[in-house]
């Protein structure tokens, strides 16, 4: 059985800013650890081949396809998932922009798209059109035709710049 073949070992990292001490196996994907163990189910698995980006989380600020990252790789890292973006029940500016622009339909890619946008805007608060398209092209949305997502990213950048200290 899995436990006999693949003994558990300790793992520590920060998740949405809070320390996590847990145990995992060498075969566990980060997505499974987050979904089954500690984070909540907002991280969605779709292609499980690191192509579609639905399962995107931020590891030390870098968007990663959590289906294809081993859990042990995040030892000592800061992991950010969709559940950690709200602040006291308030949506982040990026989340609010996606909500207000109807930049989602079925919602299965949405967490990944939002985290991707968070990472983009952390690097470049005023991305040009080419940069936005380039970044959003790393994830797949089958529903929207992308236009509303691109508008949400532009809107999110505006909101973040306006509220920046």
């Amino acid at each position: 059985m899995p436990d006999r073949l693949d003994p558990r070992f300790d793992l520590s990292f920060t998740l949405n800013g809070a320390p996590v001490e847990t145990a995992t196996t060498t075969a566990t994907a980060l997505a499974d650890l987050l979904r089954e163990g500690c984070g909540g189910r907002g991280t969605r698995l779709a292609c499980e081949r690191a192509v579609c980006g639905a399962c995107t989380v931020l590891v030390d600020g870098v968007p990663r396809a959590s289906c294809s990252v081993f859990a042990f790789e995040v030892e000592g890292c800061a992991v950010q998932m969709i559940e950690g973006l709200e602040n006291d029940g308030e949506l982040s500016p990026v989340q609010a922009a996606f909500a207000d622009n109807s930049a989602f339909q079925c919602g299965y890619c949405t967490a990944g798209m939002i985290l991707l946008t968070e990472a983009l805007l952390a690097r470049d608060p005023d991305p040009d059109e080419a940069a936005i398209r380039d970044w959003i092209s790393s994830n797949i949305c089958r529903c929207t035709g992308y236009s509303l997502i691109l508008e949400a990213v532009r809107d999110a950048a505006r909101r973040k710049r306006e509220t920046a200290p």
Binding site: G40, R41, G42, T43, R44, L45, M81, I82, E83, L85, E86, L91, Q95, A96, F98, A99, D100, S102, F104, G107, Y108, T110, A111, I114
Partner: peptide, 21 residues
């Protein structure tokens, strides 16, 4: 009116429940 869809809050926060969950 283009106000927020009723599933907006659940879908942008990750709380929406699908059969996979």
């Amino acid at each position: 009116r283009p106000d927020r869809r009723i599933d907006a809050g659940e879908k942008v926060s990750g709380r929406a429940v699908y059969t996979t969950d």
